[in-house]
Amino acid sequence: MNEQNAYQSLAETTDHDDPRWAFGTGIVEEAGAEITSPVPDGVDPADLAAYCLMLGDDALVYSHRLSEWVSNAPELEEEVALANTALDLLGQARVLLARAGHLTGGDEDSLAYRRTDAEFRNVALAELSDGLDFARCVGRMLIFSSWRLALLHRLLGSADPVIAAVAGKGVKELTYHRDYAARWTLRLGDGTDESHVRMQAALDALWPYVGELFRTSDEERRLVGAGVAVDPAQTREEVDAVLDQVLAQATLTRPDKPSIGTIGGRSGRQGVHTEHLGHALAEMQSLARQHPDTQW
């Protein structure tokens, strides 16, 4: 290598998607579908935008929580794996938010950084903090990725080309995340006495947030008919089967915990969140809100 090369490269044009990134950045252009594609026939653009926000916010907020692990993971190999997962989800979120932005007159950043808590549409499971407990991290990833994979599988044929493209890429990613989480569930569940106790406790704490994943919102119900969305209730059997299989093999007990309650029937999909989301967004949006009218 010529010793000057590294510096000479500075004079070149800066290309955002340079393949020299070791691990990639999950940049939007990989999505393979035009953000500006026409809205499918018979679909209310507001419903489609809301649905993109649901799927996008799940990915964005969970990715944000996963990135709390940076420099805190139990081993360097896990640093890389967790960051990969966070990047995958961030990539999915960016496409979905860009699609929603196109439909509502905004963009990915205005949606990520300018909405209030109540305008976020993610499920509660995405917004919890792991509190740097690796068992919580593994348990949440197992539940979340099993569920999202089941959703994305069914969205491969979505009438919306952007959602279908996100599903196409996302299925591979989520398969990987689920595999990672399942393997770690086995190691922690069937590892040491301590890890077994911790893993079981994590599942017990997470289980009340599972029920919400299968609740169908009004927007989803309308979009199912148009072939755009999937009814999450239909994924329950598949997700249960995966979780039962993994937990049994990991010598863990499926928790018998009731779901957290809704407020007048409303929860994350309707913008009613846990107390955790506000803090995550306060941090995420702080700098962008301090400098509202500029580029970075």
Partner: peptide
């Protein structure tokens, strides 16, 4: 698994 993550993305 880790080799895929670290060395091949």
């Amino acid at each position: 698994h880790n080799a895929r993550d670290v060395y091949t993305r």
